[in-house]
Amino acid sequence: MADDRKSGDRKGGHVETIMEDIGSDSPTVPRYIEYDEPPLKLSELLRYSGLPADRALAIASGKLTEPEIIAKVNKVVLISRGTLVCKTGYMVSPLGWDAEGFPVLPLEQHSETLKKNLKGCSRAVLFAATIGAGFDRLIRRYERTEMDTALFLQGYGAERAESLANTFNNEVKEAAELLGYKAHPRFSPGFGDLQLAVQKEFLGLLDAGRRMGITLSESCLMAPSKSVTAIIGLERK
C-alpha cells in the first residue's frame, strides 16, 4: 500500500523506512504498512483453537493424524479468503527516564512490568496490527450457525494477528540491529500491570481509528478483535 515505497529493497520489505524512523530524535509521525499474508503456523492455529500445545504440535508435524480437524482448518482458510487484510501502523519515540526510574513515553503510564521490560532502552517502537473488520463479521456469521467453525476461525484469526505482529516485529529487529540497537521482546497493554486503559492514548498516537479502523469499547477492548498493540524497546548495544 501507501507507504510501501521501499518494498523492492533487498533488506526486508520496510526495513529502511523503519531505520529512518528509528534514527529520528523526535517522535515520528505514524506510518502504515500493509503486508502480504504471512505464512500459516498450523500449530499456533490449533493451539488458539483450544488444543493443548503438545497435541497441536503433533498434528502440525504430522505425527498425529486427525483428518476431521485438518478438514476444518482447510475450511476456515478457504472461507477466510478475501476477508483478511494485514495492516500495521507504528511510530518511533525517543525514550527517557523519570526521577523514579519509570520510562517516559508519549504514553502516560506508571507500570513496573513495562519498566522492567524497557530497562536500558533509549528508543521505543509503538505499533498496532490488525487483520481487519471483515474477519469479525465472518466469525459472527459462523457463531450463529456453526459453532465449531467459529472456534477454528477464532483460532485462525488469533494466529493471523500474531503472525502479522511477528512479521513487523522481525523487521523492527532487523532495522534495529543495523543501527546498533537490540530489540527487546514486545510488550502489550494488558500485560503485567500495564493497564488496558492506556489503549486509548496508544491508539490515538497512531491515529489508529482513522487510519486502521481500530476502535475501543467502553472496557478498552479493541475492535476488530483480531488486533494487537505493543511496545518494542530498543537498547543501544
Binding site: L46, R55, I69, F152
Partner: peptide, 14 residues
Amino acid sequence: VYLPQLLMAADAAK
C-alpha cells in the same frame, strides 16, 4: 479429546 472435537460433535448433533 479437546474443545475443537467437542464442538464439532456438538455441531453435528445440532
